[in-house]
């Protein structure tokens, strides 16, 4: 240790790390700033597509078309507390979409839940954020699961996967993902209690 001297042993390593850190941070923040807009647009578009899906509309793959459809048919209410979707012709409200969040197995589950204008019948559900087990709980993102709510009325009870019950109060759970299924059921049941108060009370 002695032959190196004060500069080589003490000052140089510190200086080196400061310079290296500065270089790395500028690189990373440069890229971060450059991609920031794109990331925001992606997140925004993702949410819009989810709302369109929950309202039972055909979601266009093309970002611009999805954007156009959203601005044409969807109105954001109460700073995003819920969305109303107007019918293709006329100004009647055809669907109300409510964002909801609740616990999941590994992290929060965020969803948008689409209701008919009676605020009792579901159209579809889309998940905007979920960290469930891939291959098990993460299968809530599969199309059949998200569309099985059409025409059904919460509160729900769960039945085995594959039952496809015609009972409006029963939804299919996912095999091997008991807890995820329960969390989703609770999330939707809670939202059903909130939506009326939110929509009718807010106007």
């Amino acid at each position: 240790m002695k032959q190196g001297g004060f500069y080589r042993d003490r000052v140089y390593p510190v200086l080196f790390m400061i310079i290296l850190t500065a270089v790395c941070i500028s690189l990373v923040s440069g890229i971060s700033v450059a991609t920031m807009d794109l990331v925001r647009i992606n997140a925004d578009l993702f949410m819009k597509k989810a709302v369109l899906f929950a309202a039972g509309l055909d979601v266009p793959e093309d970002p611009r078309q999805a954007e156009a459809l959203f601005s044409q048919r969807v109105q954001v209410k109460d700073d995003g507390a819920y969305y109303t979707v107007i019918a293709e012709s006329g100004n009647a409200v055809s669907a109300v979409v409510l964002p909801a969040e609740g616990p999941g197995v590994w992290g929060e589950i965020k969803a948008v839940i689409g209701y008919e204008s009676d605020l009792e019948t579901l159209i579809a559900v889309d998940f905007t954020e979920q960290n469930e087990t891939p291959g098990l709980g993460a299968r809530i993102s599969e199309d059949w699961f998200k569309r099985q709510f059409k025409g059904k009325n919460p509160p729900f009870v769960l039945v085995d996967e594959g039952t496809r019950s015609s009972d409006p109060g029963k939804i299919d759970a996912i095999t091997g993902a008991t807890f995820t299924s329960r969390y989703v059921r609770d999330l939707i049941n809670t939202s059903a209690e909130q939506i009326k108060e939110l929509v009718t009370g807010g106007q």
Binding site: D9, P13, F16, M17, L20, T21, C24, L27, V28, I31, S32, T35, L38, V39, N42
Partner: peptide, 24 residues
């Protein structure tokens, strides 16, 4: 004596670049 810190920093920089690229 600080080589591991330096290595981790370099590795982390590249990983964050990958992460940002994927996000965008």
């Amino acid at each position: 004596r600080v080589r591991m810190m330096a290595e981790t920093l370099i590795i982390a920089t590249y990983v964050i670049i990958v992460d940002l690229f994927l996000k965008a």
